[in-house]
Nucleic acid binder design. Structure first.
Lengths: 343, 343
DNA sequence: TTTTTTTACGCAATCGTTATCGGGTTGCAG
DNA sequence: CTGCAACCCGATAACGATTGCGTAAAAAAA
């Protein structure tokens, strides 16, 4: 606060001491007498002195702020993650600067240069779906900026990563559908290049294999933009359901897509689960209130944010940099509801 | 970035100039020769020089960051607002520091002292539902901190405010229910003390009056904690529906409560809208996918965030403080769906 | 030619804080 | 009585950037 903020200098002149003495007294240095400390502290307390964080940052060459890049704040999965990030950062006295990439590579590069110019101490990022070139991240990493990836990670940058066990999540969901009698299970996935899509696809395929159901490429579809625009999703769905042998269940690869697909079914008057079953990744708080109540794979978003932040702060505050990095994998939970029940 | 960040001093020594010359060259001062400017600029460009924002903050006595206090990030209404805030702040080069009050007065006070200690240039706040004493805000306001209230405002602090037209929103929703033939319309509102609850209640009452329906106090209920915990809501609903003359429609006063009430009805096997109609405030993106598709009053959250931020930045960047403040009122939109249709 | 003005740059202070160095006073052992 | 810690504290220099002031040299005016 610039508003008549009291500084160490003010205390010094008021008490007839030097700034260094005041500074030391407040930091409880042994080379200041007990009485002086007491006087200084009381005065500081009384006048509600707070060290100027900006001056400290300048001196310590650290901003005590961390940058966060997500695609969208207004997406329950990411807002829950941010919640987790905040909860740790707040406790440890760090600022959180949030930027959104809106899944755009260009915007992500811009965000990063902005964050770098704000001199962040570390970075938490879930890369945009569009991003296939990681030079902007590599260059920051090479310069020594502590980075922790979460959810959408970059394989060939060596640092901490916090991910969901996408494979097992997808596996469980697929097995669940098969157990409920569905035979032709389609998967609508986000961009094929993405790390996450790979994991989810692998789980899906493994589930088919383990149950001796042959893969059918016609049942595997991708949305390059992750269903951010409904039109893309609609096209993909149209092509999926214009086939002769239609799927009897759909497994949706992201929150936005799960909702989009449900919306698609409604618009086509397809009854879920009677005409078609649906299971999808989703962190919506209200999946139980949907029509039908949706079977979802729920991700521990809050924990993810917490864990990623803890790892980042550990890196930032480490005396010397550690060369061993964690690859923290969180389980995804299958919540079974109506949308996957055969009638 | 502390990572080998290039400073003005580095440029100066590299080019055999003084820091002042470099600084002025970069700021395009007229007292630097064209050639020198060119040399400096090229060198700066080449080495990707960025002025250290922390040093600037210290000098200019402003942090270029604004504080935001909301009750919950992971609530679509507020995350949409934050989205709006970010969109403006980002463009104007401001940081956004977000804190959550979780509707707790204590936490709100803590948040504010934290933000103040982070030396924010201005504050955007939607006060917690618990908060009835505003001294913490008044004291900051008196010290000269620019504040803009949004959504939940404080009447007796004189500054910019951005609110939703709660009264008209509630009025339209109530009239809509009456037009659809509902007679006993209950309102379940957030804390009675709140500014918002008052507006919504007034709209509700006015709608009844205008249609010559007598008010019935038994149909007006409050949740002190705004339905943050389901138990509170359940109790209120139980008492509402244990009456002899039961309501045939419910008007819910907040996003959380709207979802909670729908959940309540489902748990009690009450069919919406056949047994009971429901209309509520909600900014959920998926209200159309609910069972039943929900008639909601949707608030222009994104715009609200934008407008509040614009006003705040205007205050912050004003040479002299203006004494006339805007009370910006945004319209709420009634989106009609199944949950309010009589069959 | 001399004086004045302009040009183009450097010096040093400043923002708030801490670290380094140094200095004066006291107590105590040699 | 001297020397040397121990104790308490002050002056100063950073951190990176801006800015008022000073000034040498060049240009213009006298």
């Amino acid at each position: 606060m610039r508003f008549e903020a009291i500084t160490i200098k003010d205390i010094a002149t008021a008490l007839g001491l030097s700034t260094s003495t005041v500074s030391r007294a407040l930091r409880d240095s042994h080379e200041i007498s007990v009485e002086t400390k007491k006087i200084v502290r009381e005065y500081a307390e009384e006048h509600n002195y707070r060290p100027n964080p900006i001056a400290l940052s300048l001196k310590e060459k650290r901003s005590r702020s961390i940058g966060v890049v997500v695609c969208e704040i207004a997406n329950s999965f990411f807002s829950q993650i941010i919640n987790g990030i905040e909860s740790i950062a707040y406790d440890r006295g760090y600022n959180v600067i949030i930027s959104q990439s809106h899944e755009s590579y260009k915007r992500e590069v811009l965000d990063l240069s902005y964050l770098a110019s704000r001199s962040i101490d570390g970075l938490l990022i879930s890369v945009a779906m569009e991003t296939t070139n990681f030079d902007h991240l590599k260059s920051l990493h090479d310069k020594g900026l502590p980075i922790v990836f979460f959810d959408r990670v970059v394989d060939d940058i060596d640092t901490h990563k916090v991910i969901i066990d996408n494979s097992t999540g997808a596996y469980n969901a697929t097995v669940h559908l098969m157990k409920n009698g569905f035979k032709r299970i389609a998967i609508v996935s986000i961009s094929e290049h993405s790390f996450i899509a790979q994991g989810r696809l692998n789980g899906y395929k493994k589930a088919l294999q383990d149950n001796n159901i042959p893969e059918d490429e016609k049942l595997i579809r991708y949305c390059e933009h992750g269903g951010q625009n409904y039109e893309e999703l609609e096209q993909v769905m149209d092509s999926l359901f214009s086939q002769k042998k239609k799927p009897d269940a759909v497994f949706a690869g992201s929150d936005t897509m799960t909702m989009g697909i449900l919306r698609y079914f409604k618009s086509k008057k397809m009854k879920v689960p009677d005409d078609i079953a649906l299971v999808g990744f989703s962190n919506s708080e209200n999946a139980d209130l949907l029509q039908p109540a949706l079977t979802v794979i729920k991700q521990p978003a809050f924990e993810m944010g917490k864990k990623a932040t803890e790892l980042l702060l550990k890196m930032i505050e480490a005396k010397r940099q550690d060369k061993t990095f964690e690859n923290y994998v969180l389980p995804a939970e299958l919540v079974i509801r109506e949308s996957s029940e055969k009638k």
